[in-house]
Design a protein around this nucleic acid. Structure first.
Lengths: 151, 151
DNA sequence: TCCGGTTAGTTGCTACTGCAACCATATCGA
DNA sequence: TCGATATGGTTGCAGTAGCAACTAACCGGA
Protein backbone atom coordinates (compact mmCIF):
# COMPACT_ATOMS: atom_id res chain seq x y z
CA UNK A 1 0.00 0.00 0.00
CA UNK A 2 1.13 3.49 -0.76
CA UNK A 3 1.90 5.80 2.11
CA UNK A 4 -0.89 8.25 2.74
CA UNK A 5 -0.07 11.82 1.83
CA UNK A 6 -1.14 13.01 5.27
CA UNK A 7 1.53 10.82 6.81
CA UNK A 8 4.20 12.57 4.81
CA UNK A 9 2.87 16.00 5.76
CA UNK A 10 2.58 15.07 9.41
CA UNK A 11 6.10 13.68 9.44
CA UNK A 12 7.29 17.01 8.08
CA UNK A 13 5.47 18.85 10.85
CA UNK A 14 6.95 16.62 13.53
CA UNK A 15 10.46 16.95 12.14
CA UNK A 16 9.95 20.71 12.03
CA UNK A 17 8.99 20.75 15.70
CA UNK A 18 11.89 18.60 16.80
CA UNK A 19 14.44 20.52 14.77
CA UNK A 20 13.23 23.77 16.29
CA UNK A 21 13.29 22.51 19.85
CA UNK A 22 16.70 20.91 19.63
CA UNK A 23 18.31 23.81 17.76
CA UNK A 24 16.92 26.39 20.14
CA UNK A 25 18.09 24.44 23.17
CA UNK A 26 21.64 24.21 21.86
CA UNK A 27 21.81 27.85 20.81
CA UNK A 28 20.43 28.95 24.16
CA UNK A 29 22.96 26.81 26.02
CA UNK A 30 25.91 27.98 23.94
CA UNK A 31 25.06 31.66 24.25
CA UNK A 32 24.57 31.27 27.98
CA UNK A 33 27.82 29.36 28.44
CA UNK A 34 30.04 31.51 26.24
CA UNK A 35 28.50 34.96 26.67
CA UNK A 36 26.46 34.61 29.85
CA UNK A 37 23.51 35.94 27.91
CA UNK A 38 19.97 34.57 27.62
CA UNK A 39 18.61 34.20 24.11
CA UNK A 40 15.67 36.46 24.97
CA UNK A 41 18.10 39.23 25.92
CA UNK A 42 20.07 38.73 22.73
CA UNK A 43 16.86 38.90 20.79
CA UNK A 44 15.95 42.25 22.36
CA UNK A 45 19.37 43.67 21.55
CA UNK A 46 19.16 42.49 17.93
CA UNK A 47 15.76 44.11 17.49
CA UNK A 48 16.99 47.39 18.96
CA UNK A 49 20.12 47.22 16.84
CA UNK A 50 18.02 46.85 13.69
CA UNK A 51 15.65 49.66 14.66
CA UNK A 52 16.01 53.30 13.71
CA UNK A 53 18.08 55.15 16.33
CA UNK A 54 18.46 51.83 18.16
CA UNK A 55 15.19 52.24 19.97
CA UNK A 56 11.65 50.89 19.89
CA UNK A 57 8.41 51.46 21.73
CA UNK A 58 7.48 48.86 24.31
CA UNK A 59 4.62 47.44 22.30
CA UNK A 60 6.68 47.26 19.12
CA UNK A 61 9.46 45.46 20.91
CA UNK A 62 7.01 43.09 22.58
CA UNK A 63 5.63 42.10 19.21
CA UNK A 64 9.09 41.76 17.69
CA UNK A 65 10.38 39.41 20.37
CA UNK A 66 7.10 37.48 20.65
CA UNK A 67 6.37 38.42 24.24
CA UNK A 68 3.28 39.79 25.96
CA UNK A 69 3.42 43.41 27.07
CA UNK A 70 3.56 42.28 30.67
CA UNK A 71 6.38 39.88 29.95
CA UNK A 72 8.33 42.57 28.15
CA UNK A 73 7.88 45.03 31.02
CA UNK A 74 9.69 42.60 33.31
CA UNK A 75 12.34 41.70 30.74
CA UNK A 76 13.12 45.37 30.16
CA UNK A 77 13.23 45.83 33.95
CA UNK A 78 15.92 43.16 34.21
CA UNK A 79 17.90 44.41 31.23
CA UNK A 80 17.73 47.97 32.51
CA UNK A 81 19.08 46.83 35.87
CA UNK A 82 21.91 45.14 33.95
CA UNK A 83 22.57 48.38 32.07
CA UNK A 84 21.97 47.00 28.58
CA UNK A 85 18.93 49.12 27.74
CA UNK A 86 17.21 52.19 29.13
CA UNK A 87 13.71 53.58 29.17
CA UNK A 88 13.22 56.99 27.59
CA UNK A 89 9.93 58.83 27.99
CA UNK A 90 8.16 59.38 24.70
CA UNK A 91 7.54 63.04 23.86
CA UNK A 92 4.98 62.56 21.12
CA UNK A 93 2.80 60.19 23.12
CA UNK A 94 3.10 60.74 26.81
CA UNK A 95 1.64 57.33 27.63
CA UNK A 96 4.52 55.72 25.82
CA UNK A 97 8.08 54.67 26.52
CA UNK A 98 11.02 54.14 24.24
CA UNK A 99 13.44 51.34 24.96
CA UNK A 100 16.90 52.30 23.81
CA UNK A 101 20.08 50.26 23.63
CA UNK A 102 22.91 51.61 25.79
CA UNK A 103 26.60 51.64 24.90
CA UNK A 104 26.98 48.64 27.19
CA UNK A 105 24.16 46.91 25.35
CA UNK A 106 25.95 47.54 22.07
CA UNK A 107 29.14 46.11 23.52
CA UNK A 108 27.38 42.97 24.76
CA UNK A 109 25.62 42.49 21.43
CA UNK A 110 28.84 42.89 19.46
CA UNK A 111 30.41 40.31 21.70
CA UNK A 112 27.55 37.84 21.49
CA UNK A 113 26.67 38.21 17.85
CA UNK A 114 29.54 36.18 16.37
CA UNK A 115 28.91 33.40 18.87
CA UNK A 116 25.24 33.20 18.05
CA UNK A 117 25.66 33.46 14.30
CA UNK A 118 28.34 30.81 14.38
CA UNK A 119 25.91 28.60 16.29
CA UNK A 120 23.13 29.17 13.78
CA UNK A 121 25.52 28.23 11.02
CA UNK A 122 26.91 25.17 12.76
CA UNK A 123 23.67 23.75 13.99
CA UNK A 124 21.22 24.81 11.34
CA UNK A 125 22.12 26.52 8.09
CA UNK A 126 25.13 24.30 7.53
CA UNK A 127 22.67 21.54 6.76
CA UNK A 128 20.86 23.52 4.07
CA UNK A 129 21.97 23.81 0.48
CA UNK A 130 21.34 27.28 -0.96
CA UNK A 131 18.35 26.04 -2.87
CA UNK A 132 16.94 24.37 0.23
CA UNK A 133 17.45 27.50 2.29
CA UNK A 134 15.54 29.55 -0.24
CA UNK A 135 12.75 27.01 -0.31
CA UNK A 136 12.56 26.81 3.46
CA UNK A 137 12.42 30.57 3.72
CA UNK A 138 9.66 30.71 1.18
CA UNK A 139 7.59 27.94 2.72
CA UNK A 140 7.87 29.47 6.17
CA UNK A 141 6.98 32.88 4.79
CA UNK A 142 3.81 31.42 3.30
CA UNK A 143 2.87 29.88 6.63
CA UNK A 144 3.45 33.15 8.44
CA UNK A 145 1.59 35.19 5.84
CA UNK A 146 -1.46 32.96 6.18
CA UNK A 147 -1.42 33.46 9.97
CA UNK A 148 -0.80 37.19 9.95
CA UNK A 149 -4.43 38.27 9.63
CA UNK A 150 -5.20 37.07 13.11
CA UNK A 151 -2.53 39.25 14.70
CA UNK B 1 25.94 43.39 -5.93
CA UNK B 2 24.84 39.83 -5.39
CA UNK B 3 23.18 38.99 -2.14
CA UNK B 4 25.53 37.28 0.24
CA UNK B 5 24.80 33.60 0.77
CA UNK B 6 24.79 34.09 4.55
CA UNK B 7 21.95 36.54 4.18
CA UNK B 8 19.87 33.93 2.44
CA UNK B 9 20.63 31.33 5.08
CA UNK B 10 19.92 33.73 7.91
CA UNK B 11 16.64 34.77 6.32
CA UNK B 12 15.67 31.09 6.21
CA UNK B 13 16.51 30.73 9.89
CA UNK B 14 14.46 33.78 10.84
CA UNK B 15 11.49 32.67 8.76
CA UNK B 16 11.76 29.24 10.40
CA UNK B 17 11.62 30.82 13.86
CA UNK B 18 8.67 33.04 13.06
CA UNK B 19 6.69 30.27 11.39
CA UNK B 20 7.22 28.05 14.40
CA UNK B 21 6.21 30.69 16.92
CA UNK B 22 3.10 31.79 15.05
CA UNK B 23 1.92 28.31 14.19
CA UNK B 24 2.41 27.04 17.72
CA UNK B 25 0.55 29.99 19.17
CA UNK B 26 -2.45 29.42 16.93
CA UNK B 27 -2.55 25.68 17.49
CA UNK B 28 -2.25 26.14 21.24
CA UNK B 29 -5.06 28.69 21.24
CA UNK B 30 -7.36 26.59 19.08
CA UNK B 31 -6.87 23.43 21.10
CA UNK B 32 -7.43 25.35 24.31
CA UNK B 33 -10.53 27.06 23.01
CA UNK B 34 -12.19 24.05 21.37
CA UNK B 35 -11.05 21.20 23.61
CA UNK B 36 -9.97 22.95 26.79
CA UNK B 37 -6.68 21.13 26.49
CA UNK B 38 -3.12 22.47 26.70
CA UNK B 39 -0.81 21.47 23.88
CA UNK B 40 1.63 19.95 26.36
CA UNK B 41 -1.13 17.66 27.64
CA UNK B 42 -2.09 16.69 24.12
CA UNK B 43 1.53 15.93 23.39
CA UNK B 44 1.74 13.58 26.38
CA UNK B 45 -1.39 11.76 25.30
CA UNK B 46 -0.10 11.36 21.74
CA UNK B 47 3.18 9.92 22.96
CA UNK B 48 1.39 7.44 25.21
CA UNK B 49 -1.01 6.55 22.43
CA UNK B 50 1.90 5.73 20.12
CA UNK B 51 3.74 3.71 22.78
CA UNK B 52 3.43 -0.02 23.31
CA UNK B 53 0.61 -0.76 25.76
CA UNK B 54 -0.08 2.98 25.90
CA UNK B 55 2.54 3.55 28.56
CA UNK B 56 6.03 4.98 28.91
CA UNK B 57 8.60 5.38 31.66
CA UNK B 58 8.91 8.87 33.09
CA UNK B 59 12.32 9.53 31.57
CA UNK B 60 11.23 8.26 28.15
CA UNK B 61 8.19 10.48 28.22
CA UNK B 62 10.21 13.47 29.40
CA UNK B 63 12.52 13.08 26.45
CA UNK B 64 9.65 12.56 24.02
CA UNK B 65 7.81 15.71 25.05
CA UNK B 66 10.98 17.78 25.41
CA UNK B 67 10.64 18.46 29.13
CA UNK B 68 13.03 18.10 32.05
CA UNK B 69 12.37 15.22 34.42
CA UNK B 70 11.31 17.70 37.07
CA UNK B 71 8.97 19.41 34.68
CA UNK B 72 7.43 16.12 33.68
CA UNK B 73 6.90 15.07 37.30
CA UNK B 74 4.68 18.10 37.79
CA UNK B 75 2.91 17.72 34.46
CA UNK B 76 2.09 14.09 35.22
CA UNK B 77 0.91 15.19 38.68
CA UNK B 78 -1.59 17.55 37.07
CA UNK B 79 -2.73 15.10 34.43
CA UNK B 80 -3.15 12.39 37.05
CA UNK B 81 -5.29 14.71 39.12
CA UNK B 82 -7.37 15.30 35.99
CA UNK B 83 -7.68 11.54 35.48
CA UNK B 84 -6.03 11.42 32.04
CA UNK B 85 -3.01 9.32 33.00
CA UNK B 86 -1.95 7.20 35.95
CA UNK B 87 1.33 6.16 37.51
CA UNK B 88 2.03 2.43 37.65
CA UNK B 89 4.97 1.10 39.67
CA UNK B 90 7.54 -0.63 37.48
CA UNK B 91 8.13 -4.28 38.41
CA UNK B 92 11.38 -4.81 36.50
CA UNK B 93 13.06 -1.70 37.88
CA UNK B 94 11.70 -0.75 41.24
CA UNK B 95 13.11 2.77 40.98
CA UNK B 96 10.93 3.36 37.97
CA UNK B 97 7.39 4.42 37.19
CA UNK B 98 5.24 3.79 34.17
CA UNK B 99 2.91 6.51 33.01
CA UNK B 100 -0.16 4.95 31.44
CA UNK B 101 -3.04 6.55 29.57
CA UNK B 102 -6.43 6.02 31.22
CA UNK B 103 -9.72 5.41 29.43
CA UNK B 104 -10.55 9.05 30.11
CA UNK B 105 -7.20 10.05 28.59
CA UNK B 106 -8.06 8.03 25.50
CA UNK B 107 -11.42 9.73 25.28
CA UNK B 108 -9.91 13.20 25.58
CA UNK B 109 -7.27 12.38 22.98
CA UNK B 110 -9.82 11.01 20.53
CA UNK B 111 -11.81 14.17 20.97
CA UNK B 112 -8.85 16.52 20.58
CA UNK B 113 -7.00 14.74 17.82
CA UNK B 114 -9.21 15.79 14.89
CA UNK B 115 -9.13 19.38 16.09
CA UNK B 116 -5.38 19.45 16.35
CA UNK B 117 -4.73 17.62 13.10
CA UNK B 118 -7.15 19.89 11.30
CA UNK B 119 -5.22 22.85 12.71
CA UNK B 120 -1.88 21.47 11.60
CA UNK B 121 -3.30 21.01 8.13
CA UNK B 122 -4.94 24.42 7.98
CA UNK B 123 -2.09 26.42 9.37
CA UNK B 124 0.95 24.50 8.25
CA UNK B 125 0.90 21.55 5.91
CA UNK B 126 -1.67 23.11 3.62
CA UNK B 127 1.08 25.45 2.50
CA UNK B 128 3.45 22.63 1.56
CA UNK B 129 3.41 20.77 -1.74
CA UNK B 130 4.20 17.09 -1.31
CA UNK B 131 7.70 17.59 -2.61
CA UNK B 132 8.26 20.48 -0.25
CA UNK B 133 6.98 18.49 2.70
CA UNK B 134 9.40 15.70 1.93
CA UNK B 135 12.24 18.15 1.59
CA UNK B 136 11.33 19.94 4.80
CA UNK B 137 11.16 16.67 6.66
CA UNK B 138 14.51 15.64 5.34
CA UNK B 139 16.25 18.93 6.09
CA UNK B 140 14.87 18.98 9.63
CA UNK B 141 15.90 15.37 10.14
CA UNK B 142 19.46 16.29 9.14
CA UNK B 143 19.50 19.15 11.63
CA UNK B 144 18.21 16.89 14.40
CA UNK B 145 20.61 14.08 13.55
CA UNK B 146 23.56 16.45 13.79
CA UNK B 147 22.41 17.57 17.23
CA UNK B 148 21.57 14.14 18.61
CA UNK B 149 25.07 13.25 19.82
CA UNK B 150 24.90 15.88 22.52
CA UNK B 151 21.75 14.46 24.04
C1' DT C 1 29.05 -9.65 49.17
C1' DC C 2 29.66 -5.17 49.36
C1' DC C 3 31.06 -0.75 47.83
C1' DG C 4 31.51 3.10 44.38
C1' DG C 5 29.30 5.03 40.70
C1' DT C 6 25.10 5.62 37.92
C1' DT C 7 20.24 6.14 36.96
C1' DA C 8 15.03 7.05 38.17
C1' DG C 9 12.11 10.02 40.02
C1' DT C 10 10.72 13.72 43.35
C1' DT C 11 11.12 18.04 45.89
C1' DG C 12 12.61 22.98 47.31
C1' DC C 13 13.70 26.92 45.35
C1' DT C 14 13.85 30.50 42.02
C1' DA C 15 13.03 32.53 37.47
C1' DC C 16 10.11 33.77 33.80
C1' DT C 17 5.57 34.12 31.60
C1' DG C 18 0.65 35.45 30.70
C1' DC C 19 -3.97 37.16 32.13
C1' DA C 20 -6.76 40.48 34.02
C1' DA C 21 -7.20 44.67 36.34
C1' DC C 22 -5.54 49.17 36.68
C1' DC C 23 -4.18 54.20 35.65
C1' DA C 24 -2.81 57.65 32.42
C1' DT C 25 -3.17 59.46 28.06
C1' DA C 26 -4.84 59.82 23.37
C1' DT C 27 -8.55 59.92 19.95
C1' DC C 28 -12.89 60.39 17.91
C1' DG C 29 -17.69 61.75 17.49
C1' DA C 30 -21.60 64.55 18.99
C1' DT D 1 -15.65 70.92 24.48
C1' DC D 2 -16.64 66.91 26.51
C1' DG D 3 -17.67 62.14 27.11
C1' DA D 4 -17.01 57.37 25.41
C1' DT D 5 -13.73 54.37 23.82
C1' DA D 6 -9.24 52.65 22.72
C1' DT D 7 -4.33 52.32 23.52
C1' DG D 8 0.30 52.14 26.22
C1' DG D 9 2.45 50.44 29.95
C1' DT D 10 2.68 48.50 34.75
C1' DT D 11 1.27 45.56 38.53
C1' DG D 12 -0.83 41.51 41.38
C1' DC D 13 -1.43 37.01 40.95
C1' DA D 14 -1.08 32.34 39.55
C1' DG D 15 0.87 28.80 36.59
C1' DT D 16 4.74 26.34 34.67
C1' DA D 17 9.57 25.70 33.79
C1' DG D 18 14.54 24.23 35.15
C1' DC D 19 18.51 23.42 38.42
C1' DA D 20 20.43 21.31 42.18
C1' DA D 21 19.98 18.33 45.92
C1' DC D 22 18.00 14.32 47.65
C1' DT D 23 16.46 9.24 48.25
C1' DA D 24 15.97 4.76 46.39
C1' DA D 25 17.44 1.26 43.57
C1' DC D 26 20.47 -0.81 40.11
C1' DC D 27 24.99 -2.49 38.39
C1' DG D 28 29.73 -3.65 37.94
C1' DG D 29 34.15 -5.10 39.81
C1' DA D 30 37.19 -6.42 43.72
Amino acid sequence: MAEQPEELQLAAWRAFLTAHARAMAVLEDELQAECDLALAWYDVLVQLSDAAENRLRMHELARAVLLSRAGLTRLVDRMTAAGLVERVPCQEDRRGTWVAMTAEGRRVLDNASPVHLRGVERHFTRHLADREAEELREVCARVVAALEPRL
